[in-house]
Every structure is written in structure tokens, then in C-alpha cells.
Amino acid sequence: MVEDIIRVIREIFAQIAAETVRLIPKIFIVLVVIVLTALVIKLLNFSFRKLLKMVRLDEAFERLAGITLPFSLSNVIIWVADLGIALIAIYGIVNLFLGTLYTQLFTEGLYYGARVLSIIALTLVIFTLFNTAIEKVKVETRLKGYMFFIILLLVTAMLVDITALSDPVKNALITGLSLGVGISIGVFAVWFFFHEYLDKRLLEK
């Protein structure tokens, strides 16, 4: 009885040991990949920082576009480059350890991540433009609130696109939001162009 238990334990340990031994080269390769990735990122960061310092990208963008961004364009470029290198490394590791099925999963995750990132980027761009427009043109508070509302509706529509809801629900929501945005803009346009005429007619009544 005891011998059987010892034999089973021994077999379990032998199997674990065999698997570990099989995994060692892969672990070693992964370590090398991680070290190399860190090195490449460090080197890239160093050279990009030097080059961007010479290019003075943020300064040039401000001068050309007349807009001050709430973030540094140089840092965004460095961050995007680092992300690219890191993704290549992660893809390599996933491929090495988990095989084709998981690489497909990784690819899908990547596409999803890209969509999330694009929404964040788009939101940032819209809000920056909104902010700049408000600064440049003296807009009254009510109008500011209205513009903010429209932007929020647009961002919500984009967010609905990346949720895990079913397609019919997504379609319904996005159609509703689009209709809402369209009607709001239409009502606003009517008020903006004809409010004096409408005020006069209402007072007459």
C-alpha cells in the first residue's frame, strides 16, 4: 500500500521533472527574448529621445497648428514604439509557449486593444479640438454645455461599438444615439438661425 503511494508520488515527480526539463530551453529562450526586448526598448528610447530633442516636435506642432496639446507628442511616439516592440516580444513568447490557437487569440486581443486605443485617441483629439475652439471663440456657457453633450453622445456611440453586447442591441443603441445626435443638431440649427424670428412670433402670440 505504502509502496504504491510512493510509486505514484515518484511517477508524479518524474513527470513534473520531465515537463520542467522540456520547458527549460523554452524558458531560457523567453528570458533571452525579454532581455533583448528590454535592451532594444532602452536603446530605442535613448536614440528616439536624442532625435526628438533635435526635432523639437512639440514646439513645431504648437507653432504650425496653433494648438497646445495636453500631452507630449514626443512621449507618445516613444510610447508607441515601446508598445510595438513589447507586442512583438509578447507575440513571440505566446507562439513559443502556447501555439497557434493562442496566437490567434492574441491577434484578436490585439485588434480589440487597437480599437480601444483608437477610441481613446479619437476622444482625446475631439476634446482637444473642443477645448481649443472654446478658447479661440468666446462661447457662452449654455452653448459650451451643448457642445459637450454632443461630444459625449459621439464618444458613447464609439464605446458601444467595443462592448460585448449582442449585435442587434449594439445596432439599436447606435441608431438611437445617432438619431439623438442628428435631432439635437437639427434643433440647435433651427434655434441658432431662426431664434430671433421664433422669439418674435412667440411674443406676438
Binding site: L44, F48, L51, L52, I77, A81, G84, I88
Partner: peptide, 16 residues
């Protein structure tokens, strides 16, 4: 310098 940076970015993402 800017061209070099953009080319490097393109190469990274093209590889990916």
C-alpha cells in the same frame, strides 16, 4: 531625424 523615427515606427508595426 523625424523621417528616421517614423520609418522605425513603420518597421516595428509592419513586423508586428
Amino acid at each position: 531625424a523625424l523621417s528616421l523615427i517614423l520609418t522605425t515606427l513603420y518597421l516595428i508595426y509592419r513586423t508586428l
